[in-house]
Each structure stands twice: as C-alpha cells, then as structure tokens.
Design a protein around this nucleic acid. Structure first.
Length: 421
RNA sequence: GUGAGCGUAGUUCAAUGGUUAGAGCACUGGAUUGUGGUUCCAGUUGUUGGGGGUUCGAGUCCCCUCGCUCACCCCA
C-alpha cells in the first residue's frame, strides 16, 4: 500500500515463521532421530534435476509429468525441472553413486521442498515439503512392514497415533495386465453411464476408475473385480505376509481395494495414511513398493520400498491439538542510562555465551517501557541496572511470574540463575 | 485447466447509493522521582486490491483485471 510496489511470495508458496516454525522443527527433529534408530541415513539431493529424471522415473503419462512440473531451460539450453517428488531423485542418486555396492539393503531418508505447478488449495502448495524414506535392495515384505511401522511410530511420537493406514497391493507386471482386462470387461457394458472423467480413464488408466468420487461411478463399481483376487502367487504371498507382519507389529490397517496410486512406478504394495481432519487433500503420507524403477533408470535390478509424508499436512494436524510453544527469554536487562547499558551489554554477552537467552532494553527507553517489553516477551526475570546498581555492584532482579524481587552481586549472576531455574 | 466465494487501517470487522470511511484489538507515549500484567488518557495507520463505467453522488450497482480462499482434476 505504500508507494513502492509491495512484493509478495509467489502463489502457492508460503513463509514459515514462528510460532509455526517450532512445530516444523519438532517434526523434522523427530523424523531424523527416529529414522536413525531404524538405520536410515540422510540423503540430500539437488532440488533441480534434468527433466528426464522425472519424466522417465515418474512416468510420461502421469499428471505430474504431463502438467504439473516446473520445467525451464537453463542458459545452456538444457531442460531443467524442479523436483515434484523425492523418489525419482533418490533413485538417480542411488544409481549415479553406485550405492548398490554398499551392504544391502540401503536405507535413506530425505527432507526438503518439492514443487508442483497446481492450483493451490487447503493443504496443497506449489512449494511443499516432504519427509521421505527409501529402502533399496530388498524384496522382502518384512521391509514394507518395517518401514510402515517406523512411520507409525513417527506419527505416534508426534501425537498422531490414531491415523488410518490403508493398504493395498496392485500386483506386478505379471498379474496386473490380467486384472486390467477383468476390469475393462466389467465396465464394458456400462461405460456410457460413467462420468466423463472415468470414460477417459476407461481408455487410458482403468485402475483410476476405482477411486473416482462421483456417486454414480461408486455405485457402478460396487461389484467390480478386486486387485487382490487377481494377484499372481508371488504377489499374493507378499501381500499376505505383509498383513501378518503389520498385525504382529500392531500397525492398525485397513485393506482398501480401491486405493490406486497416481504414479506409474509402484508394484505390489501401496499404502496411504489419511486423516479426517484435513479437508479434501486428506493424505498425510503415501508410499509403496517400486521393484522395477531402479532398473528402469539404468541401475542394477534393485527392488525398493519407500514413502513420502507432507510436512505442511502434519503441521496442520498438530496445530489442531497443540499450540506451538513460544520460547521466552530467561532474562531481560533493563538498563538506565548509557553507562548502565554498556555494562548490561557485557553481562548479556557473558550469559549468552552460556546459552542463556538474554534480551536488552532499548538504550534510551524509560524503565516503564522496558518493563512492559520484558512482560510482553514473557521473560522469566528482569534485571535492572541503573546508577544505584553500578555504584553498589548489586543488580536488582525481579521475577515477573510472581513479582518477587531482590538483589544479586554481579559476580554471582551465574550461580543465581543455575540455583533459581 | 474448470467452478464457486471473498477483497475496507498491522489485524478482526462496521458503514439503508448521500457530508470529512469508523470501532475493538495491536502498536507508541503518558497517568510527579526507578518497576510489567488490570485500569484511565492521548496519539499513529487507509489510493476501500487496481482500472473503467452507470449516477447529481459509488466502499456500496455493472464490466474488466489482479489477488486470496475453497472445491474439481490430481495428490503430500
């Protein structure tokens, strides 16, 4: 509103500030501590990659690749894309650095911003943050269960233990074509009754009809064949073992035969964690197995499993239950006069070196206004430093919570604080 | 990309088409010497998102545009 044009963050991109930032830090800290206990190590990859990393990795026909990527040419004429998700980058990194030569399976986690050019809405941003984890080099259902259990513990530690795990298996390249045929045969007589979107899906990606939200489509698919009834013996055994292990590890799940993933690379296990308290974009975490992706990206045959969780969505849920704690200074020093302020700076400097949070009043401000500011900051103590204190060497202190006050010699400030706090 | 709703002070919101657009909160200062919260007093803040039109007169009605929000699509 002032005369120079006021700058704004881009559409769908947000600043994260206190107090929310404390929740972000808590989420990130919890993830790195807990995931480490499961043997996951951090992997940091660039936010931009050659476009082919994603178009090949995620799948040419997916919505992400077709219309949601931030793609541009750099000054050398190369096609560059801001990563729309983490798995493709992680796979590129795995292959490029030949991580398969290390003891297998290899477990990594990552966190950072992702970019998708979409219309923003509740819980959806153009720059959004994910925490993801990937396991490379094991086809065992034990890995699926272990990672999902880790995720559950992560959510529980954050106080989100009641979230709903939905699990499905979408088979592999051996059994999925047969299922697709069965689905096409089932819908063939009623294609005209499907919604326009599903008529399109019928031609391009019939699996997607299963998660259409249109009521008519839901009715029409009531008796549709289920993926899990068309699994090959390998996929079937994998799925059954996974469910057993989830039970064993107390991961509360429901099998959702209609859950289909939008990314092309999934095989066998897919899962999602959703919440009722998020609005339309209700997925907190999504993941699954991708046994062919590493090979398809030029690496050795390496089965893999992973997930990604949206930090904004977790923070949204956290904000519904607990308010972010606002940290407060331990001491506010109100100094009266230039000489006192100089002395206060020295005292503050020493205390801060001990990692004690100290704030100083404005040099020329009245005592009243400094007291008011200390109160507003919720400082635990106020130290008052004026001529009297300079002469006597005794600093006046006051505890704001109960109004108790006293004096302490400058030399004893350190022990005063450790004794009182 | 499609659809709907909303744009007035830092913020939450007022203002039957009619003077100079107001209030709470917040912020700053003060209420006799150097003590916060409660109270009282005073003060600051606006291109009513922008542009055009109708009208004697537009924050209010119409059109365009920009922005925000929610939903669809899709997804974390």
């Amino acid at each position: 509103m002032s005369s120079p044009e006021r700058q704004k963050a881009l559409k769908g991109m947000k600043d994260v500030l206190p107090p929310d930032i404390y929740l972000w830090q808590k989420v990130e800290r919890t993830a790195s501590e807990l995931f480490s206990a499961y043997g996951f190590r951090e992997m940091r990859t660039p936010v931009a990659e050659a476009t082919a990393v994603f178009s090949r990795g995620i799948g040419e026909g997916t919505d992400i690749v077709e219309k949601e990527m931030y793609t541009f040419e750099d000054k050398g004429g190369r096609s560059i894309t801001l990563r729309p998700e983490g798995t493709a980058s992680a796979v590129r990194c795995f292959v490029e650095n030949q991580l398969h030569t290390l003891p297998s399976p290899q477990k990594y986690y990552y966190l950072g911003p992702m970019f998708r050019y979409e219309r923003p809405q509740s819980g959806r941003y153009r720059q959004f943050y994910q925490i993801g984890a990937e396991v490379f080099g094991s086809a065992a259902p034990a890995v699926d269960a272990e990672v999902m259990s880790m995720l559950r513990h992560f959510l529980m530690r954050l106080g989100l233990g009641s979230l709903n795990f939905q699990v499905n298996s979408i088979g592999c390249e051996e059994c999925r074509p047969g299922y697709k045929q069965a689905l096409l045969a089932y819908f063939a007589p009623v294609t005209g009754d499907l919604c326009p979107d599903c008529q399109r899906r019928y031609l391009h990606n019939p699996l997607r009809i299963l998660d259409c939200k249109v009521r008519r489509c839901i009715e029409l698919r009531k008796d549709a064949p289920r993926v899990t009834e068309h699994l090959c013996t390998g996929c079937e055994a994998h799925f059954r073992k996974l469910l057993d292990l989830l039970k064993l590890l107390n991961v509360p799940y429901t099998v959702n035969h209609e859950m289909v993933r939008g990314l092309d690379y999934y095989t066998r296990t897919t899962f999602e964690v959703t919440s009722e308290d998020l609005g339309a974009q209700n997925a907190v975490t999504a993941g699954g197995r991708y046994d062919n992706l590493v090979r398809n990206c030029g690496g050795p045959d390496t089965p893999a499993f992973g997930f990604a969780t949206g930090i904004e969505r977790i923070v949204d849920l956290l904000k519904q239950t607990l308010l972010p704690p606002e940290p407060a200074p331990a001491i506010f020093i109100a100094a009266l006069g230039e000489q006192a302020h100089d002395a206060a700076m020295v005292i503050a400097d020493g205390l801060r070196e001990e990692h004690i949070w100290v704030e100083l009043g404005e040099p020329a401000a009245s005592l009243k206004s400094q007291m008011r500011k200390a109160d507003r900051l919720s400082s635990e103590y106020v130290f008052i430093l004026g001529d009297d204190e300079l002469n006597s060497g005794l600093i006046s202190w006051k505890r704001l919570s109960d109004g108790t006050a006293g004096k302490v010699s400058r030399a004893d400030v350190g022990s005063f604080l450790s004794g009182r706090r």
